[in-house]
Design a protein around this nucleic acid. Sequence first.
DNA 1: GGAATATAATTGTCATGACAACTATTATCC
DNA 2: GGATAATAGTTGTCATGACAATTATATTCC
Lengths: 149, 149
Amino acid sequence: MSNEEGQLQTSIGFWMGIAYRKLSALLQQRLKAYGLTPEQWSVLYTIQVSEGLIQKDIAERTHKDKPTTTRILDQLEDKGFIVKSVGENDRRAFVVHATEKGRHVIRETASVERSVSEEVRSIMTAEEYDVFVELLQRIHSHAETKLEG
Amino acid sequence: MSNEEGQLQTSIGFWMGIAYRKLSALLQQRLKAYGLTPEQWSVLYTIQVSEGLIQKDIAERTHKDKPTTTRILDQLEDKGFIVKSVGENDRRAFVVHATEKGRHVIRETASVERSVSEEVRSIMTAEEYDVFVELLQRIHSHAETKLEG
DNA sequence: GGAATATAATTGTCATGACAACTATTATCC
DNA sequence: GGATAATAGTTGTCATGACAATTATATTCC
């Protein structure tokens, strides 16, 4: 890495982007056959684990904003993986349920997501892994605090 | 973190995405006044550090694909931060140069990027920092290898 | 109880990025 | 030297995400 390339090459933010995009592309490639993107997978997984969430809950748990959540749910609905129903107590809200097809595809693909996670885990020690996840969470908290403040 | 939330909450890939997006949003907020996004900043910075690169070189150094590089360069050109000139030896290629305006905005904003990097650095030990960057690079290499293979 | 406010979701716009298909130019190989 | 392949860049399409504005319903507060 030549000196000329400057500080960018040591900037943590840019390395996070580069590593994240590649890892995400790998998962995307492996999920492609099932008709799911990594983000759709994570939303459907969240729905399937806790049935009966409203969109706001899903947005919070997946750390996505509301418009992004709306659009990912639209895609999952188009593919027949979920259904929405108007909330009983609050008619502004939609309760989201996974369909049998949705639960099936998550059962089929759970091992795909797990394989990528395990591969990542395997290229570092258990201690490094723990530090890494802890630091990601610390960075997230820091950025969130600075954004709000 | 309830048990119900499942494995997603411990998946390194999803935490990388969440942390990266928040950090990127923070930098975006701070760069907004200068009319640059984080990605545009990184491309312009790369151009300014090594004058006379062609688009292919810029794509490689910033780890972006060719279409993304083309579009970011278009925006930088529209804003008057760079100029393109047809390559002397290879008429397929465009040599890219930062304008005085482009060099000026990088001088103005270098401290903005640095402040975000230093804040991140300050929430961990030097050792943790080194491990973190090293692991990002390891994850990137792994994903790249698996994608090609 | 009705005005003001808050909340759930949607729509619109733009930037980025993955991927595929394409154009123009250059290099290779008989 | 001409067909073929490789390379630099562009264009198009889709998914995601940030941000702002809007709609519909609930809540709060006199």
